[in-house]
Simulated assay, not measured.
Amino acid sequence: MSENASSLHVLPWCVRPGARTWRCDPAPAEVRAFHAALPDYSPTRLTELPSLAAELGVGRVFVKDESCRLGLPAFKALGPSWAVHRTLVERAANGVEQGQVTLVTATDGNHGRALARMARRLGQNAHVFVPQGVHPQAVAAIVAEQAKVTEVPGPYDEAVRRAAEEAAVPDAVLVQDTAWPGYEQIPGWIVEGYSTLCAEIDEQLAAEGVAEGPDLVSVPVGVGSLAQAVVTHYRSRPSERAAALLSVEPEAAACVLESLTRGEPVSVDTGDTIMAGLNCGTPSSIAWPYLRAGLDAAVAVADSDSARAAGDLAVLGVSSGPCGAAALAGVRVALTGVGAEERRTALGLGPSSVVVLLSTEGPAANPHCTTGH
Rank of each mutant, 00 (worst) to 15 (best):
G95N: 15
A147V: 05
A167P: 03
L205Q: 02
W189R: 01
A144Q: 13
P136G: 10
V139M: 03
V223F: 09
E184F: 07
G112P: 08
V230E: 11
V221R: 00
V173N: 08
A199N: 12
H111W: 13
G133Q: 07
T102Y: 15
A164K: 11
R117F: 09
V104N: 04
E208R: 04
L197R: 05
G112F: 00
T178M: 14
G182W: 15
K148T: 15
P220M: 13
M118T: 04
E240S: 11
Q204D: 13
P170L: 05
S236F: 00
S239I: 10
G213W: 08
A168W: 11
T232C: 11
A172F: 01
E184G: 08
Q98I: 11
T105N: 14
V219H: 09
V217M: 09
L115W: 00
A207N: 08
S239D: 10
V217E: 11
L216Y: 05
T178R: 10
R120M: 06
H233T: 08
V175K: 00
E151T: 04
A126K: 01
E158R: 13
I201K: 00
R235N: 06
S195L: 02
P187Y: 13
E200G: 07
A172H: 02
S239L: 15
V169M: 01
P131T: 10
H111T: 03
R120F: 09
A119W: 00
V217F: 10
A116Q: 09
S236A: 14
V217A: 06
E208L: 10
I186L: 14
V149M: 13
P238L: 02
V191K: 14
L226G: 05
A141F: 07
S239G: 10
Q137K: 07
E165T: 07
A140T: 09
Q176I: 00
R117N: 08
R237A: 04
V169N: 01
A168T: 08
A211W: 07
V143Q: 13
N110Y: 09
P153Y: 01
A163P: 02
R121F: 12
V169P: 02
I201E: 05
P170A: 04
V96Q: 15
T105S: 15
T105L: 09
T150D: 13
E184S: 13
E145N: 07
E166C: 05
T232A: 12
G209H: 12
M118F: 14
G154C: 13
Q146K: 15
V130Q: 00
R241Q: 14
V143Y: 03
V143N: 04
G213F: 06
T232G: 07
R117P: 03
G133E: 07
